[in-house]
Computed example of a mutant assay.
Amino acid sequence: MIQVNGLTKSYGDFPAVKGISFEAAPGEVFALLGRNGAGKTTTIEVLAGFQRADAGEVRVLGLDPARDRRGVRRRTGIMLQEAGFFPDLTVAQTVDSWRDFTSAARPTGEALELAGLLDRAPTKVRQLSGGEKRRLDLALALLGRPEVLFLDEPTTGMDPEARRNTWDVVRGIAASGATILLTTHYLDEAQRLADRMAIMDHGEIVAGGGMADTLAAQAGRVSFELPTGLSPGDVPLAVTVAGRVATCRTEDPDLAAQELLSWAAEKGLRLRGLEVRTASLEDLFLEGVDHA
């Protein structure tokens, strides 16, 4: 559904995207992650046909989005970080006006219900909160029943309940067979939603793969306050110490914690602040951008 091979895009002398490659399959949520300026939005704009690649090959639904933008746009939906609305139109009027330009559009009420805005249909756009405007963006992106959906920071400004409702919508759209390309700074969101991911930094992909397999291959950690009078060499596991907090990185943090607790019991020690963590996307993200 999405194929990117060696995509390169520069703005003058600034290389925004440097030869990246990835693909996304039908029914898959693919998360493109990275800090601000990593090249994520530029990548989406090329895929949507708003920008032309300088080099490389890009295909969406088998089409070149630069050469067949109309064909791509008919079958895709996009939710950018910022969208322009007419502030004095109501929510329903906004959706109605977009329906005039959308083939096979959903009914207005259906689109608003999907985005959790049905009760705000008669409200003027200027009276919406920032999170509600994002939900209106989502309603418009879903109008044409897209086969590929681009979501750029979709839940920014939403309250926790709206975020979770949006996650349910995204899961439902993917379950129907659509492919979703997601960018987000909420790493818990990406970890919950994405089947696969790529981490970008300075225009390059620095880590990526299947979400579950990638995280399973990462080391977890066990941390605790090193008891007074002991040095790191006294601990039965290899640890690093910052201040008085000792940390052990391990593929099996539960087993490491059991070994530490058994050792502490034998020594009559109490391990204060014991924390056991499996690998998280945040760990992988920070490691990826720190080593880029």
Rank of each mutant, 00 (worst) to 15 (best):
Met197Ile: 14
Glu189Ser: 05
Asp188Lys: 08
Leu215Met: 12
Gly233His: 10
Asp195Ile: 09
Asp119Asn: 12
Thr240Cys: 08
Asp168Glu: 13
Tyr186Val: 14
Val235Phe: 08
Ala141Thr: 02
Ala216Asn: 14
Arg163Gly: 06
Met211Trp: 10
Leu128Phe: 11
Ser223Asp: 09
Thr214Leu: 13
Val148Tyr: 04
Thr240Asn: 04
Arg192Glu: 13
His202Val: 15
Leu226Ala: 06
Leu118Glu: 09
Asp213Ile: 00
Asp119Ser: 11
Val169Trp: 00
Ile199Met: 12
Gly220Leu: 00
Gln127Ala: 14
Arg120Pro: 00
Thr184Ser: 09
Pro122Met: 04
Arg135Lys: 06
Leu138Lys: 00
Glu147Asp: 11
Pro146Met: 01
Val169Asn: 09
Asp188Tyr: 09
Thr183Leu: 01
Leu230Ala: 10
Val206Pro: 02
Lys133Tyr: 03
Val241Arg: 07
Thr155Glu: 02
Asp159Trp: 01
Ala139Ser: 02
Leu215Pro: 11
Asp137Leu: 00
Gln218Arg: 15
Trp167Thr: 07
Asp168His: 12
Phe224Gly: 12
Asp213Tyr: 11
Lys124Ala: 13
Asp234Met: 08
Leu142Ile: 08
Ile205His: 03
Ala174Val: 08
Val206Trp: 05
Glu153Met: 07
Ser231Ala: 15
Leu142Trp: 04
Thr214Ile: 08
Ala178Met: 02
Gly157Phe: 08
Arg163His: 10
Phe150Thr: 00
Arg196Pro: 07
Leu149Asn: 02
Lys133His: 10
Ser176Asp: 12
Gln127Ser: 15
